[in-house]
Design a protein around this nucleic acid. Structure first.
Lengths: 334, 334
DNA sequence: GCGCTCTACTAGCGCGCTCTAGTGCGAGTA
DNA sequence: TACTCGCACTAGAGCGCGCTAGTAGAGCGC
């Protein structure tokens, strides 16, 4: 920067003004400074800038690797952040890299706000985060914590899916839940409520699971093993999310079960996955772009007005019927 | 930091020493400082740290959203970087966010080295980057640029896949290429070479495509349209990558084509996708973890010894046979 | 000529840390 | 006693910027 100032024959302060696009420099000088900078390959050092002005205008996004819905969200976060003049830093949680680690990295890089995609950390930790920095949780409700919250109305989504299945004639509908995964508790609750509402209380069955393919595969195998012991297969499976649904599909189809003839499968998320599978997955769509925009806006607005209380946005999901659902098999005492 | 120093009754310098885990402080003092820091929620500010020591010890990773193989790589990058004492920053390219933009963001955040996952930017740009910062390209060869390069031996992978298909009896094997995508040129070349080697030169057919599901779907539709006009379907498709293979599968299976009975499909990458599909995808495995480790090591070693010239690592891929391949249909004049 | 305002520009402090060159002190050695 | 040595610790400069307070000079009215 000093080099640029010298070569352009001005002070460092002027160079700073030019690079911040602030008033206080003549057009002529501006051009000269920019030209010189270009020549010697100068680019403002964001670490120093950030240190000097105290604000980083950077949003930190934590996501989980392989969670395809998260990449959908990320794609929506960038443009909205840019529109509002904020930078985005990504940090991934993965096997061997805990959410806490991923979040610490973001904080260490001076992110002013955190956008957590489907965090699974415990509420106390999230609340502590919320005290320290503006925090937005996407897809996971954190009851008494100081965090904004963006999600889709799980209950509506599940209800639509269940109504649709029941209307097709299904009765033996099982739900694979998502364990501690974001939204799981509400989906589970809504499943139970829907079963009861349709007079299917005795058929209620929640199989513990996770939001991973592996979990779906295991559940699929479990169901197959039961069948081999003479128990009937369910006629429909409501999975915790799309990945889990994929796993179920994989286990069942490989074992010769025909979907949707013998069994229907419904996912959740409408992640990228669901419409690129050979047989499109019937699923509940959450509008990733809209959710991303809300998350970014919540973060930014609260940064710019610290008085603001954390808010909650609930978006309406929509059932998307594709190829993995149909009427139950004739013989099923469904 | 000053607060911590005051409260612990030491100088700021000592606090610095403690947090850097450097010799020069007694065990007792260390504990006291750390305890105080914990109490008042102090965390070293990486912007300032970075500014002060001139080195950021941060690796910038650019990846493309939805490119599932990239998330496999990312998962491998983190532990290796941590082992070597480096931090990792992620930046995604996506629709509406060019690679250049993603890379600038990393540079702006003072990454010392860039690890580019399957970059598609033009070689001149990459070379310019290479001059400015240590740069490693993964999966994409950049001939005369000053960048390290990690990839798998495309020719070997393709050859294995082709030999396997031919051995099964396939002759009408088409290749959907990956356009400007990483590795595409070499895969295309190897496909042609393999066909010639097996005496199938007249059957050579390369359909232009991309590394996306959409491209696979379009190609699938193209093939179906040809069939409807009386032309024979190929008996096997070698896709540019797994995502493209998924797209082909989807288009064909939906149209009633049975895989692998009527047609075999081979992917490339062994990304997360390929083993979680209902019918596992036969594909060519690239060892993501190994590639990630090489990439990180190249970057770090070159950072620590600027004399070092850019290097190239070629890893052996391996054909993984799953459910989408089998002998060609009987009737096929294959 | 004076005072005023407005624009273009500069001096220099401070952001929170690292790092070099020290200081002070007790133990070991001649 | 005088000295060196090593250890625990400190003072203070400096990293590359942003920002506040200020100056110099032009233009204007009286």
């Amino acid at each position: 920067m000093a080099d640029v100032a010298d070569r352009a024959g001005v002070s460092r302060a002027l160079v700073s003004i030019v690079f911040r696009n602030q008033p206080g420099a003549s057009q002529e000088t501006r051009e000269r400074v920019l030209r010189v900078a270009e020549e010697i390959g100068y680019r403002p050092d964001s670490a120093a800038r950030l240190l000097a002005r105290g604000r980083s205008r950077t949003l930190g996004v934590m996501f989980t690797v392989h969670q395809t819905f998260h990449t959908d969200l990320i794609e929506g976060i960038y443009p909205e952040a840019e529109r509002l003049g904020y930078d985005v830093l990504l940090s991934a949680a993965a096997e061997g890299r805990s959410e806490a680690k991923a979040i610490e990295a973001l904080l260490g890089h001076r992110c002013e706000a955190l956008i957590l995609l489907g965090p699974e950390a415990d509420p106390a930790y999230l609340d502590a985060l919320g005290q320290r920095a503006v925090t937005v949780s996407v897809s996971r409700r954190v009851p008494r914590a100081r965090v904004d919250f963006v999600h889709s109305a799980e209950s509506k989504g599940v209800r639509q899916a269940m109504d649709y299945l029941v209307e097709l004639g299904h009765r033996r509908i099982v739900h694979i839940d998502g364990g501690r995964g974001p939204g799981s508790a509400e989906r589970r609750r809504s499943y139970r409520a829907a079963m009861r509402r349709h007079g299917l209380e005795p058929e209620i069955r929640v199989i513990p699971g996770e939001h991973t393919e592996q979990s779906g595969i295991e559940t699929g195998r479990l169901l197959l093993a039961e069948r081999d012991r003479g128990l009937p297969l369910p006629t429909a499976v409501l999975a915790g999310n799309d990945r889990c649904a994929m796993g179920v599909l994989m286990a069942l189809v490989r074992a010769g079960v025909e979907v949707p003839r013998d069994l229907s499968v419904v996912g959740y998320d409408d992640s990228h996955l669901s419409h690129v599978m050979p047989i499109g997955l019937t699923t509940v769509r959450q509008d990733a772009v809209l959710m991303a925009e809300h998350a970014v806006r919540f973060a930014v607005e609260r940064l710019e007005d610290p008085q603001l209380q954390p808010r909650e946005a609930v978006l309406d999901p929509k059932l998307v019927v594709r190829g993995t659902t149909g009427p139950p098999p004739q013989g099923a005492a469904g």
